[in-house]
Each structure stands twice: as C-alpha cells, then as structure tokens.
Design a protein around this nucleic acid. Sequence first.
DNA 1: TTGATTGCAAAGCATTTGCATGCTA
DNA 2: TAGCATGCAAATGCTTTGCAATCAA
Lengths: 162, 162
Amino acid sequence: MKAERKVLDRYLQDSRRKRSRKRDVVLEYFLRSSSHISAEDLYDLVHREHPEIGRSTVYRALKLFCDSGVARQVDLKDGRMRYEHHLRRPHHDHMVCTRCGQTFEFICQEIESLQERAAASIAFAPESHSLQIYGVCKDCRRGEARPHVEAPRTSRRPIEVK
Amino acid sequence: MKAERKVLDRYLQDSRRKRSRKRDVVLEYFLRSSSHISAEDLYDLVHREHPEIGRSTVYRALKLFCDSGVARQVDLKDGRMRYEHHLRRPHHDHMVCTRCGQTFEFICQEIESLQERAAASIAFAPESHSLQIYGVCKDCRRGEARPHVEAPRTSRRPIEVK
DNA sequence: TTGATTGCAAAGCATTTGCATGCTA
DNA sequence: TAGCATGCAAATGCTTTGCAATCAA
C-alpha cells in the first residue's frame, strides 16, 4: 500500500497541492476495495465509519487518484463511473456480461501493440484507452443466469490471451 | 435511406410495436446528421423545425434505433452519450483527442479477430464492443491546438490499420 | 499566514418516467 | 377498439460547485 502513497505524494508536490488526513482515509478504503467500485459506493463505505468525511471529498479524491495515476476510470455501461486500482494491477481490458453484470478481465499484448500501431499511423499520441466487450457469459448462455449483480466485481487475475 | 426503414420496420413488427409519423421524422433527421450526435443535439435539431415533437420521443427513438441495429451508442467521455449510424457504416473504433475533442475513426481487422479469440477462450458470446483510444492528435501535439470542438464530428472514412 | 481542502446543500445535466391524451393497426 | 406512442413536467441519479469554515505547510 506504500506505492500509491508515494505516487500520490509526488503528484501533489509537483502540482503544489497539499496532503490531507481525510483524503488519506479515502485512499485507504479505495485500495482495500474490490475492483470496479463506484464513487457513490466508496462514499457509503467511508461515510459509514467516518461520518465526518463528505461526499465531495470522495469525488474529489477519486478524481485526484486518476490524475495521479493511482486509479483508473472504467465505464461498464451501467450509468455510473467505476474506478479500479491502477498501479499494482497490470493493464487489462474487460468483458461485461449484459445479463448478469459480471465482468471478466483480460490482457492481450497483441491488441495493445496493434493499438499503438494504429495511433502511430496518424501521429496520434495515445495516453490511455478503454476496451470493453459486451455479451453473454458462459453461465448465462447455459441458462444458469444468476440474478443481476449490482456491483460487478472480479477478483481473479486477468485472463491472458495469446 | 431505405435500408434503415426496412430494418426498423422489421424490428417493430417482430416486437409487436407500432410505427409512428413522429418517430419517422426523428429517424430522418438522425440519418441526415453527422456522426456522433448527442440525444440533446438531435432533439434541438428536430424540435426547432417540429415543435410538436418532444424530448422524450427523441430519447425513446434513439433507444429504439440502437435496439434494432440502426444506430450505435458511442462514449466519447464528454459526459453525454453519442449516437452514430450503424447500418451503412463499416464497424470501426475511435481515437479521441483530449485537447480539441476531435475524433478519428479506424478499423483494424486483426484487433477484431483477437477480441473474438479472447471471448472464445472463456466461452463468452460477444455481442458488441467499444474501443476508444484517448490521447493527443497530430495538430494539438504541434501546438496548433484549435479551440475545443463542442460536437466532435468526423466525415472521412475510417483509417484502415494493417 | 497563505492558500489548499472540506462539508453542506444547492445546482447541473443528461436521461427516464408517470400519466392523461392522441394515434396506429 | 385495444394498446402502443407521445408531451409535459416532474423525478432520478450521478456528479459538480459556491462558499464559509478548517486545515496543512
């Protein structure tokens, strides 16, 4: 949990901003959270045990985490933004089941390279990207659909595609 | 402009819904519009000349267009959903300039195949996908940044990446 | 001390919805 | 005629903001 602190502090210093105890608490909870947490859910989590920490602090903190590279925004097409840890986790993309809401993470080095080639071909300097495949997962295809998961979470490590 | 009508009518029939004159007008304006129009912008366009057509009709129509395959939702990360024609245009992905808002469309057959392979590897049945690369475009890198474009539009045909 | 950070409630925005009325098949 | 489609305004839900009070460096 120290790497994130370090990166964040460096970012704050560079942009001449200050640390704050409350934001630190938010960071702790965020790092402890499962993947794909939404701002509102993180707020509930934090606020329950620290009523003195308000909604705006959480939203502002998440924005800062993204700017500094500690977190990443993911759009799972469910109407709210979701955030995932970015430092310790290898970059990955997502498959989202439109029936049960489950997400599956995967990495494909070849796709990454092709994206860079695509960008290079028009002298575009890529900074980030977002790739989601929407469809129906194995279980749901079998008709074993479970009730829709409200907060999709995935703990396994990303599937590697070669 | 006939292909879309046909697909839509078929869809309506299959789902036992009805045609409507107003919705037809919305379709016309949508097909005539440039890529990446937002619901609100389409509403303004239509409502200006047809004050009897309301906001909800436009929103509901766009949803229908997507469900039937006539349109596709695109997330350009600017806070609103955007829609593009889907029938006549080959499938493509987007590079979005975070400085000027311009978008560049591209196709890469190899990326498509790799996505299918990724899905197949966990028996996931892909239905659609969305790939955006965010970064800085050629012009903006040169410092020739233009003022931020409010409604990003692209008319050229997608760049092919091999 | 200076300026960044916060909480609160209010504002913003895009989108959805309830309901009475109008249309289509 | 039955029941989908529509307009309006109100409701939603997530996110941002204005501002006075607090806190960090």
